[in-house]
Nucleic acid binder design. Structure first.
Lengths: 206, 206, 206, 206
DNA sequence: GACTAAGCGAGACGGTACGTCGCGTCTTAAA
DNA sequence: TTTAAGACGCGACGTACCGTCTCGCTTAGTC
């Protein structure tokens, strides 16, 4: 019913709400980055962000959704548009490196572990992840694959999803299970595996 | 091989203790298999196994170690010795399939999710996993790689660990993150990737 | 007497908190009155008072402080101001009877046993008892002694504390140890002992 | 049915059993003497006495009976026969001092607190106390009273039990509740109170 | 001097209560 | 209307002792 001043009021409210939201997400990421999943406590987030616990629950159903939200945002932000480098290996490498870099970056890597591991145990979170985090990645990878096929570097019919699994799977495996470092060589090795596996002869796009 | 008065006592004690231990681990796996990580409660394990809560705590430090123990045992059980099939692709496929099969099996797959996610967030558990679950797998894979190199199917210097990552990583990625099915084709695709990547020409061991 | 915006808030909060507190103390006394010290369980208090266990622990450090609080309140409530009866024997008798009556009353007597026994074994509780329960009693008795001395019924220099010990000690002894009844005669006998001991001739205030 | 050699067998058995029993009681007293009632645990007694927990439970129903047994023995041991000193005050003082001394002695005083406080909360223990610990005391005091009456120092009809309450009550009150010291003056004051109360004139047996 | 039975040690076990932690709800005052 | 502040119900945690039980060993007394 209110007219006129309603819009600026809403704007102001949103501005305040936005500040709250941001403070909460920041605090969440800081806590996640500590590497101990148990450090992420709603009360700790509230204390660190200077926000009331109630305010957090008003916006997120529970701390796991909050955690997921905090990191999905991170995963979506550093997106460059996929560049045509004229070289399939380089493009695959660029993609693999973007995955490695994101997960290796401080504080994103440690901050990812808890939410990602929660994805594994909560179908609802998994659904959010699959719907919000994966498709953009596939969209980014698809043109690379397409050009690779066109160049004759990749087999016709190569599925984007399969390549993505092969590139991302080992990275996550290191992050979550083996604990091996996410170093510079990993991206190259993965790109190489896509092109030639571990066969003696260098792959077609060498 | 010690005989004498000590042994029967120990045996009997162990028999009783063993029954307890088994009941606890079984209950743990059943709860884990329900797919909801929060279903795994020490009290629930106690109730389901008909064992006192204290007995559980007498044997495991907390429910996470219990969970890890329950699944590590599962991971270690289905071990066949790696057979020389005379065909690198077949051997890689056999290995990949063993991973897929184990994680796909009911109730082991779902039961793995919770502990695996905990491994990701607890360095102590991660260490246990790396020390107890990974080496046997690498030991199993190593001769396959060695024979593959000898046959000229794999590049000299191919690292067991890298191959393992490439074979296991995508499987875990599906299980934990993407939720894609662990089907029959996955093993073949992974073995193929090792041998030829996604290049048009069939790999050396085709 | 502070007014303003703060007070109603506090009042309302206190009203709720007060209801909780009262329910807890009531349940505590009921359980104590059962005569079996082991019946006093925080969980039982919670169940009986319809309050969460945590709420109890938010207010009292442990069940012993709760028990002490529950009975100290009882000991402090029935305080009349010490009346000048013009007769030392009567005044001493009134005091002694007030002790007897309080400890004999249902449910206060049985309810006292457990906390009192705990006072005996916990210096911290003992301190609370001495600081909160004893001084009011001495304050009550002091004018009686003073008037008794003034009347020539009591020796100059008679210590309040000594008289109190002599009046209260046997009552507690019956309650806690001998189990003898806390009857009507006890107060009179104690008052008489103060005035004349058990000597043949009636004491000065006879 | 067995005759003859049965008795020595029992004797030897009893000798071993006696050693056990003694070790247990000693350990119990040591733990009680620490002043913290919670220090008395069956496991601690077992550990300290070098005896298996089972052995303790074979002889005592629970730790409270054990504790009571440990101190009742102490209360019964230091009995001198009541001497005719020819002076009622001296004899009363001797009795009062024996109570004070026993409860003040290390480690008996602190060791008494826990069991005595348990007497207060367990009718079964109270019964044991009344039946085993009190009568000997009364028997000891009775001749003193009798002689006091004969000498004209005490009123005819003075009840032993009343005098005992008046002498022992304040001592226990200090020990258990007020925490006041069990010093030298206490006995004298109590004996004096019996004889003259707190009246100005010295009592008949001064 | 072997045999038997009783007591003892060791310690796992089922169980009760403890006191703590964090969740997510709810109420209330103030902005 | 939204927020901060925080009490509350709740469920699980991991711990401490309890008192019971089983079982092998030792020891004491019998044959």
């Amino acid at each position: 019913m209110r007219t006129g001043p309603g819009t600026p009021a809403t704007a102001k409210r949103n501005r305040r709400a936005g500040r709250c939201r941001q403070a909460i997400l920041d605090a969440t990421r800081e806590l996640l980055a500590q590497g101990d999943a148990r450090a992420l406590t709603v009360q700790a987030v509230a204390a660190r962000s200077g926000v009331a616990k109630t305010t957090i629950y008003r916006r997120w159903r529970d701390k796991r959704e909050l955690a997921l939200d905090a990191v999905v945002i991170d995963m979506l932000q550093p997106f460059d548009e996929p560049a045509d480098a004229g070289d399939t290996r380089k493009e695959l490498l660029a993609f693999a490196d973007s995955v490695v870099t994101m997960l290796a970056a401080t504080p994103y890597g440690p901050a990812m572990q808890a939410p990602v591991s929660q994805i594994a145990t909560d179908p609802r979170l998994a659904r959010v992840y699959r719907e919000r985090a994966v498709p953009p990645r596939l969209d980014q990878l698809a043109p690379v694959i397409k050009r690779g096929i066109a160049r004759g570097d990749l087999r016709a019919g190569t599925e984007v999803r399969s390549v993505h699994e092969l590139l991302a799977g080992p990275v996550f495996y290191r992050l979550l299970l083996s604990g091996a470092p996410l170093d510079r060589h990993l991206g190259a090795r993965l790109a190489g595996a896509i092109l030639a596996g571990f066969t003696p002869r260098t792959g077609g796009a060498g």
